[in-house]
Write a protein that binds this DNA or RNA. Structure first.
Lengths: 346, 346
DNA sequence: GCATTTATTGGAAGCGCTTCCAATTTGGAA
DNA sequence: TTCCAAATTGGAAGCGCTTCCAATAAATGC
């Protein structure tokens, strides 16, 4: 009736409770055949350890540190941060993991060292990194050297060679935006990129380019600027892009905040959206719904990503130091709203 | 060195562990003097129960339900919801409480019944309510009738007679906004209210009025409209208020989203902000920082409020059914940004 | 004043798990 | 073949708490 306990598993496998505990914690000195028998019993019974009991019985609770980036030049997208933290906290509560959050100034040259320091101070069992730290290969290597498991959230493709990563397929997401706009008949584009260090944002551009390629278009049909992910920079870049020499009929932005800024620039220029200019964002933060018109964007399941990150860290801790790098891709989704396609209500 | 246990308290008070447990759980059959002695020992040692152990020892973990409002006509402010949930989840993890989140359509006439149903289904020990449910006195009374403890977050002043509430002093916050604008020299105002059911938002208006009163101004100097907390409604109301007959030099909005909409309307009208028109928001969600110019607003410590709500629910559960109503006020803060006072960078 | 409730206390088991330590088995080296 | 170290297993204590039940003290009825 009620949840099976470790003793149920032991009885079913015909071994002592101690042996089951060893298998559960990946400890040595259990014969492979016994180990297998125990695993089978666990599976048959649908057994899952009771973390309250495990923590009570001496083993200190797993501790995981979540690192957020902050900066005066490019303030963090707080919703982005909140959503990740919420997902991580939820998963942590479920898994009996203690989550500690630190905010680090990304423009500080010593940021990486500060992270390493924090990680050591907290004696944590794992780190969850967000951009741009998730793309800092040097930092990732040092973390690995320290024997600290790390999972990169929403990072770029390069990180996966050094650490475990969780994120959407940015290339594909960029492709989806491009395909959507091309299918709408657009042939000339403006593109507002993000900061250079954010590898995932660059991947989006490459994917976008690929979609244009499919339609016989190329870099010659794109005019781009680089912002820093803020509303303000989106506004300024868009103003430049929408100047007198404007050819573009669509403006693609690397995140929602910049798209919101671009929206303001377009309104100021007296342009109708999407009739005169289509604008798209990226991330599907609440911003995309509260601006007018609402933004077509790519939905990124931030909470789930963070939750998966915590889960993987827990798995790694169980398996000892075998922090196997490798990417875990979560599904994204193109969300079409009024900023690219006029609806009946617009 | 390490955290004191129940046995330490028992030894110190010179009683058995069982007796301490009784006192801790507010159970009967302990002489007042003994009870007091135990309480003293608890205080001296700084003892706090280990919830892992408590839960393990049979008592099922406390379960708390968080109710969010959603609606098609006035979509929820997702950041508002996220921040509350994050605060509640953090506190829950710390306290060993299980948190369940439900989203209820506020425009459904049967919303209150649905909440009651959910609360019974989940067999929960407490409910955390957000506006407008936090102001639904009928619902609160029914909950009390069912013996379910409830805490209202960011609700109005009336709720506190029926249930426990946690929130800022909305009247005072409105007053602060008014005083700020008056001190800046403004003498004629536009005010965009929120939905009628949101009592806390009404309190802000009253406080604002009081500040004008201090300067010899009154309702005659305010022209108001009612929105529904969305960007769109803020835009529309502002457009009406900024029309040809405009007298107002400042536009006060009951939340940040509507202020962002008002900002767009002002931009469209070719007005300079804050030189031609000052605009203020309320809540200090990320929106207030990502718009241009950034919004002067009232900071509401949402995470802490939710955390306090969980803590109070846990206290109530410990004290049996003595769900003492009463308001707990948390500090708010006036955040002055460029939308009311031009800075060097603007 | 004595038997019988009733209020107040304490003893001890046990929640589901980890871990120390002792017991048993195994694999070689002598 | 014999003996010892290493590998493998199980027994049992105990993490901090609740709760059942027995023991004791106080209060009530006659």
């Amino acid at each position: 009736m009620s949840r099976p306990t470790i003793d149920d598993v032991a009885a079913r496998a015909g071994v002592a409770r101690t042996t089951v505990s060893r298998v559960l914690n990946n400890q040595p000195n259990v014969r492979p055949e016994v180990r297998e028998k125990v695993r089978a019993a666990v599976a048959e019974l649908g057994y899952r350890v009771n973390l309250q009991a495990r923590n009570l019985a001496g083993r200190r609770a797993l501790r995981i540190v979540l690192i957020h980036a902050s900066d005066f030049d490019s303030e963090p997208n707080s919703y982005f941060a909140s959503a990740l933290e919420l997902g991580a906290t939820r998963a942590g509560a479920r898994l009996g993991v203690q989550l500690i959050t630190h905010v680090i100034n990304q423009s500080d040259p010593a940021a990486a060292d500060e992270i390493l320091e924090r990680v050591e101070d907290d004696q944590c069992d794992g780190v969850l990194l967000t951009p741009p730290f998730a793309d800092d290969l040097g930092l990732l290597r040092k973390l690995a050297g320290l024997g600290v498991a790390a999972v990169c959230l929403a990072g770029g493709a390069e990180a996966e060679t050094v650490a475990a990563t969780v994120g959407i397929d940015d290339y594909r997401a960029g492709y989806d935006i491009g395909k959507h706009l091309v299918s709408l008949g657009h042939r000339s584009f403006g593109f507002i990129k993000g900061l250079a260090g954010h590898v995932s944002a660059e991947g989006r551009y490459d994917g976008f380019l690929a979609a244009l390629g499919d339609a016989g278009l190329g870099e010659a049909d794109i005019e781009w600027k680089r912002g820093n992910f803020t509303f303000r920079s989106g506004h300024d870049c868009a103003q430049a892009l929408l100047g007198t020499a404007r050819k573009a009929s669509a403006l693609v932005c690397a995140n929602d905040d910049m798209a919101a800024g671009a929206l303001l620039a377009a309104h100021k220029a007296g342009l109708r959206i999407p009739q005169d200019i289509a604008i798209t964002g990226f991330d599907d933060t609440p911003v995309s719904e509260i601006v007018w018109p609402p933004l077509t964007t790519i939905h990124q399941p931030l909470r789930r990503m963070a939750a998966r990150g915590v889960e993987r860290l827990v798995e790694m801790a169980g398996e000892g130091q075998a922090a196997a790098p490798g990417r875990e891709v979560v599904a994204h989704e193109l969300v079409v709203r009024d900023s690219s396609v006029a609806s009946r209500s617009a």
